[in-house]
Design a protein around this nucleic acid. Structure first.
Lengths: 199, 199
DNA sequence: ATAGTGATGGCAGCAACTGACATCACTTGT
DNA sequence: ACAAGTGATGTCAGTTGCTGCCATCACTAT
């Protein structure tokens, strides 16, 4: 293992900044190299210059380290949704928020590719991703309710939005074409509208 | 603990029939009584008159014991979808299959209530449920493709169907009204159609 | 009877995760 | 400058989920 592959060095003591970030980087690198199951938490911690116990202070479990960004993504979506014009139909407000979020994700395509490859290789990680998406749906449904949308429409709109996002994201990751993620989202929404219209 | 609460007796040797069923019943009972995390696999096995090692021969992990039925549900859905008339629009064929499956679930409402209460109390179990639903969606998408539906439409239709089912099932479980689950599904689909039409 | 077969038990071991407590680096008040 | 305080980290022991390996049991076929 080359020294360059390690993201700490011996001159670091305790209290080196950004322990969480170092753990995230170390985990993603190791999961990508050897696979999720073949990586122990102790190895991640060691690579980050910390101990296993400290890992579990930052992340609830071995999987969560890949999903720390979900929180800020959720905040962004809810915020964008809340500031949409009142005139927008709920489904379009949701789509607009997802497109904006997609534009952000797009800026880190390399990272997204690497991360998704790791997740795709392990069912436990897929489970975690699904519950994060479900959490996003709940948060968006709540934001819609604050806009006066009633249930079940609010929940259905949010769930439909997440379905659209999932399909669009999947195509963005797996198709070599360099098209825009927001563009994929728009197209998927149009497809959903066609499909639910019985076409 | 009363003797009646135990689903084996000392006259049983090895080779008593339906080990899997006994494990399922024991697990659901214990998860409902003390909660999922407070129940050890050893306790489940003991209650079923077996050992921990045997539990893991029947179920891949402690959560899976609650989801054994998902396989047959998936077969049923795919079969029903495959035998829908060619004239039916994809979304309506999916809805019809889901309604038929809902009619089956309805026959065991007590069991469904108990099981959902256990799942609702634990995020790990919710994760597992989500991936089972995602698997259902994949299987339905594949069935649609065999009907000639192309791909983003097939995936989107299946995902939308699962979203409809989730919302309908949730209402069926949590609303005291004794309305039909298939009826909830129809209504949720209508809501989705309205919502995606921009209303 | 004997050998074979499939289900089960027993045991050792690893890794994920947790609680309790010690220790260190840095800050604050005086 | 020094002591007390604070928050992040280390250390260690323990539980539990889960797996591999081999022995054992009940039953079946020849």
């Amino acid at each position: 293992m080359s020294v360059a592959a390690i993201n700490y060095d011996l001159s670091m003591g305790r209290w080196e900044p950004d322990a969480r970030g170092r753990l995230e980087q170390a985990a993603l690198a190791l999961y990508a190299e050897r696979g999720f199951e073949q990586t122990t938490v102790a190895e991640i911690a060691k690579r980050a210059g910390l101990t296993e116990r400290t890992f579990f202070r930052y992340f609830a479990d071995k999987r969560e380290v890949l999903f720390w960004g979900a929180g800020s993504l959720q905040e962004f979506l809810v915020g964008t949704l809340a500031s949409a014009p009142d005139s927008a139909a709920p489904i379009d407000a949701v789509a607009a928020a997802l497109e904006a979020a997609g534009a952000l994700l797009q800026e880190r395509r390399e990272f997204s590719l690497k991360r998704q490859a790791v997740i795709a290789a392990n069912t436990g990680l897929q489970e975690r991703e699904l519950i994060k998406l479900a959490s996003l749906a709940s948060a968006m449904a709540e934001a819609l309710r604050r806009r006066g949308v009633r249930d079940p429409a609010a929940s259905l709109t949010a769930e439909a939005g997440i379905a659209v996002f999932r399909i669009a994201f999947d195509r963005w990751i797996n198709e070599s074409s360099q098209r825009d993620l927001p563009q994929f989202i728009r197209e998927s929404l149009d497809d959903l509208k066609a499909v639910t219209a019985g076409r």
